[in-house]
Amino acid sequence: MKTLRYLDNVVTLTLNAQKCIGCGACTQVCPHTVLAMQSRKAYILDMNACMECGACANNCPTEALTVTPGVGCASYIIQSWIVGKEKATCGPGCC
């Protein structure tokens, strides 16, 4: 995935190092190696590789990680503009 990079400086991922207890769950579930461990704390190694899937935040025991997860799908976003985020779906043929 080193050759495939998306837009820089857009992602909503945040890490509160004070809340981190160093369990390492986030480094296991991240599919893009965005997070890594150093001296028993997680840190953000590659912020711009984040795709905001939300796996890390969902598995963080202390809510040290936050991210606005979503579906990175154009038809979903168009629908969320028209009918609102609650009612939007990707459509019948989508994933």
Partner: peptide, 18 residues
């Protein structure tokens, strides 16, 4: 539209370019 089928595009980025 193909962003929805890739495993590396963030929704924030997709919304920005849209």
């Amino acid at each position: 539209n193909f962003t929805g089928s890739t495993p590396f595009t963030s929704p924030s980025g997709v919304e920005k370019e849209m």
